[in-house]
Simulated assay, not measured.
Amino acid sequence: MVDEAGPGRTERVSRRIESRFFDETSPSLDRFGSLLALTVASVVALSLIDVHAIENTLARGIFSIILSTVTGITLVLGFRSAGVARRGRRIAEAMVVLAFVTSVISLALEQAGKLEASAWQPDRPSPLWVLIAVITPFAVIHRLIAHRTVTVRTLAGAIAAYLLIAIAFCYLYLYVDALTDDSFFAQERTIASWEFMYFSLVTITTLGYGDLSPDNPVGGLLATSEAVLGQVYLVTFVAMVVGLLIQQRDD
C-alpha cells in the first residue's frame, strides 16, 4: 500500500511543480521553426561580426548592445516555444529589458570615464544575458522530452536547442574573458569577438582544431563541459527520436 501511494504522491508533486513553471496552453508553444530561424541568424551574426575590431568605443558599444538584444529576443522566443508559464516568460522578458538597460547605462558610464566594473563592459554580455542564455536551451529540451511523436517541429526544436547551447557557452566565454585581466585564450594575438562563437561551435562538435585553447582553469572546465554536454545531447536525442519513430511505425 505504501509502495503504491509513494509513486502517486511523487507524481502529483512533480506535476504540480511542472504546472507552476510550464504551460502547455501557451499560444507560442512548439513554434520551433521560428526559433530555429532566429537561432541560426544569431549564430551567424555572432560568428561573422567582430565587435572588438570597431575602434570607436561608442559605436562598438552600440553595435554590441544591438547584437545582444537580437540574441535576447531569440532567447525569449525560446521560452515561449518551450511553453514556460506566464510568470517565467515575464521574468525572462524583464531580464532582457533589464540587461538592455544596464548595457546602455554601462556604455554611458564608459563614455563618461566612470565605468570601473569590468563585468559590465558594454562590449561584453552582462551577467543577465549570460543567465538567460544558459536557462533557455534547458527549457526547450524540457519541452522536447514531452513530445510523443516526431514532427518537423520536433526536429527544428532539437537543432535549435543544440545551437542555443553553443550560444550559451559563447556568452560564458565572453563573460569570463571580461572578468579576467588576461585573455581567455592562450594564443598571444588579438582575439576577435567572432572567435568566441567559433570556439564554442568547434568545442560542442568536438572538432578540436587546436587553433584556440583556454588559458585558465575556468575556461578549460567550461570548454570540456560543453564538449561533454554536446555529445550527451546528441546521443540522448538521437536515441529519443529513433525510439519515437519506431513507435510511430509500429502504431
Score class of each variant (00 low, 15 high):
Leu77Gln: 05
Val97Tyr: 08
Ala117Leu: 08
Val84His: 09
Val101Met: 06
Ser64Gly: 06
Val70Ile: 14
Phe79His: 08
Val44Leu: 12
His147Trp: 02
Thr69Met: 11
His52Ile: 09
Ser81Leu: 04
Val130Trp: 12
Leu164Thr: 03
Val150Leu: 04
Gly78Asn: 05
Leu115Cys: 02
Val44Cys: 01
Leu46Val: 07
Ala45Ile: 12
Ile65Pro: 00
Val104Leu: 13
Glu93Leu: 13
Ala117Arg: 15
Leu115Ser: 03
Pro127Thr: 10
Val40Gly: 10
Leu115Val: 02
Ser68His: 15
Gly157Met: 09
Glu55Trp: 07
Leu109Arg: 15
Thr71Arg: 07
Val130Arg: 12
Val43Asp: 01
Ala45Leu: 15
Val101Glu: 00
Arg87Gly: 05
Arg89Asn: 07
Leu67Ser: 02
Ser103Gln: 14
Val70Tyr: 15
Ile145Asp: 13
Arg90Glu: 00
Ala158Asp: 04
Val70Lys: 06
Val43Ala: 08
Ala53Gln: 09
Ser64Gln: 03
Pro127Met: 07
Ala94Lys: 00
Gln111His: 15
Ala108Phe: 08
Leu48Tyr: 01
Ala59Tyr: 14
Ala119Gly: 13
Ala108Ile: 12
Arg148Glu: 13
Leu115His: 04
Ala41Lys: 04
Leu115Asp: 00
Thr151Ser: 14
Val101Pro: 01
Arg90Cys: 01
Gly113Ser: 09
Leu75Ser: 03
Arg90Val: 01
Gly61Leu: 04
Ser47Asn: 03
Ser106Val: 09
Arg148Phe: 06
Leu163Ile: 01
Thr102Gln: 05
Ala158Gln: 08
Arg87Ala: 02
